[in-house]
C-alpha cells in the first residue's frame, strides 16, 4: 500500500549512514538515500494524483462509496462543468499569468537591489536599512489601514496592480538574499572591478547578478508561487469579474461552503446558493486546473533554476 500519513522521522538519521566513504558517496548509501527521497517525493506528489482521480470519478459513485483510488465509474462530467464557464476561466488564466510574470519581475528586481545594498560593508546605513526591512516582518498595522493605503492613496482598486504591488516586496526574501550575497559574492571579486573604476551599478549588473543566479532563481520561484496562489488581494480589491484571478475562483467556492457550514439556520433562504456550489468532483477538477499549469511548468522552470544553481556552483 501507499505510504500512509503517519509521522516518520527517518530522513535525518540517514545523514549519518554514510560515514565510511571518503570521496564519492558509496553505492549503498546512495541507494538508501535515493529510496528515502523517492518515497518522500512520491508521498508529496501522491495527493495531487489522487485529486486528479477524484476529479474524474463519477459524482454518484463519490456520493455512495466516497473517495477511492480506483473508482467504479469514471466520468468527465466535472470537466464539462468547467467547460461551461470556460470564458471566465480563460480570462482568469490570463490575469493570473500576467500578474505572476509581471509581479515576479518587479519583486525580484526590488528585492535583489535592496538585499545587495544591505549586504555590502561599504554601505554606511546597511544596519539601519536591514532593521527597517526586518521590523516589517513582525509588525503590521492590520488589514484596514493597508486597505486604505491601497484604495485611497494608491487608487489600486479594480486594477491589475492591486494584485501585484501588495506582494511585490517581502522582508523575509530580502534577508535570505542578503545572506546569499554576503556568502556568494565576496568583496575580493569586486575589488578588482572597483580598482578598474567601474561604477557600483555597473558592477552590480555585470558581475554580481550573473554570480547570483541561484539566489535570484530561488527568490523568483518563491514569488511566482506567491502570486500564483494569491486570492486574498483579489477578494479585497477586485470587483470586476474580468480581473478575477484563478485561485480566487476556487476560494470563492470554499468560502461559500464554510459560510453554509456556519449558517445552518439559513438553509431555507440559501437554497439558491446550494445549486451554484459545485459538487466534490467539480471542486477537485477546479483544483486540478488551478494547480496543474504551474505544477507542470515548474519542472521547465526548474531547469533554468538548476542551471542557475550549477552556474553559481562552478564559479571561481
Amino acid at each position: 500500500m501507499l505510504k500512509p500519513a503517519v509521522p516518520s522521522k527517518k530522513v535525518p538519521k540517514a545523514v549519518k549512514k554514510k560515514n565510511y566513504n571518503p570521496h564519492q558517496l558509496g553505492k549503498k548509501a546512495n541507494a538508501i538515500l535515493n529510496t528515502m527521497l523517492a518515497v518522500f517525493a512520491f508521498s508529496c506528489v501522491f495527493p495531487f494524483l489522487y485529486v486528479i482521480i477524484i476529479s474524474l470519478t463519477d459524482e454518484s459513485v463519490l456520493e455512495k462509496n466516497g473517495f477511492s483510488l480506483l473508482p467504479e465509474t469514471w466520468s468527465f462530467e466535472a470537466y464539462q462543468f468547467l467547460w461551461a464557464i470556460k470564458s471566465q476561466l480563460l480570462q482568469s488564466y490570463m490575469i493570473t499569468i500576467a500578474v505572476t510574470v509581471l509581479g515576479t519581475i518587479i519583486s525580484v528586481f526590488t528585492i535583489a537591489f535592496y538585499a545587495y545594498a544591505i549586504s555590502r560593508p561599504q554601505f554606511k546605513f546597511r544596519k539601519q536599512f536591514t532593521f527597517f526591512a526586518f521590523f516589517t516582518m513582525l509588525f503590521n498595522g492590520g488589514l484596514v489601514p493597508f486597505y486604505i493605503v491601497a484604495t485611497q492613496v494608491l487608487h489600486l482598486r479594480d486594477t491589475i496592480w492591486a494584485l501585484i504591488l501588495p506582494m511585490a516586496v517581502n522582508a523575509f526574501y530580502i534577508l535570505i538574499m542578503r545572506t546569499f550575497f554576503q556568502r556568494s559574492v565576496p568583496e575580493s571579486i569586486l575589488e578588482s572591478a572597483r580598482i578598474d573604476g567601474a561604477s557600483e551599478l555597473r558592477i552590480y549588473f555585470q558581475i554580481v547578478l550573473p554570480l547570483s543566479l541561484p539566489g535570484l532563481a530561488t527568490i523568483a520561484l518563491f514569488s511566482t508561487l506567491g502570486y500564483w496562489n494569491d486570492w486574498f488581494n483579489a477578494l479585497l480589491f477586485i470587483d470586476n469579474p474580468a480581473l478575477v484571478p484563478l485561485q480566487s475562483l476556487l476560494m470563492k467556492i470554499e468560502n461559500t461552503l464554510e459560510f453554509i457550514r456556519q449558517n445552518t439556520l439559513l438553509t431555507g433562504s440559501v437554497k439558491g446558493i446550494m445549486q451554484s456550489v459545485p459538487k466534490d468532483a467539480a471542486k477537485m477538477a477546479m483544483v486540478v486546473i488551478a494547480t496543474l499549469p504551474i505544477a507542470v511548468s515548474y519542472p521547465f522552470f526548474q531547469r533554468y533554476f538548476i542551471q542557475g544553481l550549477t552556474i553559481g556552483g562552478v564559479k571561481e
Partner: peptide, 30 residues
C-alpha cells in the same frame, strides 16, 4: 457590486472599517 456569499462578510468588514464612501449595503442577522 455583487460579492459572493462566502466573501461578503470579510469584504464588508474591511470596507466599513476603512470608512470608504458607499451608499447602500445588504445587511442581516447572518
Amino acid at each position: 457590486k455583487m460579492i459572493d456569499w462566502g466573501d461578503y462578510d470579510k469584504k464588508m468588514q474591511v470596507v466599513i472599517a476603512s470608512g470608504e464612501p458607499y451608499d447602500i449595503a445588504f445587511t442581516a442577522s447572518w
